[in-house]
């Protein structure tokens, strides 16, 4: 009997422990509800904030409500970032922007009066070498013309109210601004395509190397009479390239955000894009002043490279000696190949 008793006891224990384990499996995961329930009850007890004040706090934060009226962001009662955008655009951007552009122009003028044109140090040889192919020149001038048109129309929208309304009057400036806005919005994407063409075409020529470091140390031959070495692109041209590849690309993409409101981008996004567009545009316009100066009156014999495609060998020797050497080696190889 004692044996049977102990057997029964063991069976009972097994049964009970089995039940307890099963219960634990079911109940333990439920304890999560205890925690959330506790938290909820705590939150409810911490309610004494004024519900009406909460409503106004929500409104000030620009939380969205419901409205039966359709329209962009119509369900937002108030947006605070517009005032910030206004202060930034009308204040520092417009003010310092105009000072900055003016300063760059005055600096270039001062430099020109002091240094004068960088003349050819050796007389022209009459022999020329092709610097820019026809396609490269087409690409350059397309981009250049578009850049200038976009600069004029864009600056008109920023400064026209202060500068052009006193000259043209309200209806006159409005008529012009209407055309300017249309041109800016239409030519912008075309400029983007042209700019990307240039960035792709000249990409492999624009990696910085040791030669550029020496070029910068000698101020690119702009100051004094020494002629630093340079390949096809000198250090300055490479800086211009990378300015366009960074600020220029940011300019294009921020422009697209502004140009296509049909995608319903929010005002905060548009305001940010506008500030980026303004900053990069002002930077590149200032940069372009320098680029245009160096390419035209600043350097004797530079412009003809971009108009006719040919530069004098004396010019190439002075400004892009390593490139000229390279070209000569190539043509020597070709002529020696031909004579073989």
């Amino acid at each position: 009997m004692a044996v049977a008793d102990s057997l029964n006891k063991r069976k009972k224990m097994m049964l009970w422990s089995g039940i307890i384990i099963l219960l634990a499996i079911v109940v333990l995961p439920m304890s999560g509800y205890l925690v959330t329930g506790f938290n909820e009850s705590q939150q409810q007890s911490a309610e004494p904030t004024n519900p009406r004040a909460d409503t106004w706090r929500q409104v000030r934060r620009g939380n969205e409500g419901y409205t039966a009226v359709t329209g962009q962001e119509a369900n937002e009662l108030i947006q605070g970032s517009g005032e910030t955008w206004r202060q930034v655009r009308n204040g520092p951007m417009a003010t310092y922007g105009s000072w900055f552009l003016g300063f760059v122009l005055v600096a270039i003028l001062a430099f020109y009066t002091m240094r004068g044109q960088v003349k050819l140090t050796h007389p022209r040889t009459g022999e020329t070498v092709e610097r820019w192919t026809l396609n490269e020149r087409r690409l350059h001038w397309t981009t250049a013309v578009l850049f200038i048109l976009l600069t004029i129309t864009g600056l008109s929208l920023l400064y026209g109210r202060a500068v052009l309304i006193p000259l043209l009057g309200y209806p006159g400036f409005s008529a012009y601004a209407n055309v300017a806005k249309f041109m800016h919005n239409t030519l912008g994407p075309v400029f983007m395509i042209a700019l990307f063409g240039i960035l792709i075409k000249f990409f492999r020529h624009n990696f910085f190397n040791k030669v550029d470091l020496e070029w910068f140390k000698a101020y690119g031959g702009m100051v004094g009479d020494n002629h630093p070495h340079a390949g096809r692109m000198n250090g300055g041209e490479k800086v211009w390239y990378w300015a366009l590849a960074t600020a220029g690309v940011a300019l294009c993409f921020s422009g697209l955000v502004l140009d296509f409101p049909n995608f319903g981008q929010e005002r905060e996004v548009i305001q940010l894009a506008h500030v980026i567009h303004l900053t990069t545009a002002l930077m590149l316009i200032a940069f372009s002043f320098g680029h245009i100066y160096i390419g035209t009156i600043g350097t004797e014999g530079a412009l003809e490279g971009m108009t006719t495609g040919q530069v004098d060998v004396a010019w190439a020797e002075q400004h892009h000696d390593l490139w000229l050497q390279e070209m000569r080696e190539k043509s020597n190889n070709r002529s020696s190949d031909a004579s073989d």
Binding site: G82, Y170, K181, I270
Partner: peptide
């Protein structure tokens, strides 16, 4: 505002706190 002068640039909508310009 004067609709003969307005060019529909959208700036007033960006700046307005109340989303009034349409």
């Amino acid at each position: 505002h004067d609709k003969d002068i307005c060019i529909g640039c959208g700036y007033c909508f960006y700046a307005c706190p109340f989303g009034a310009p349409q």
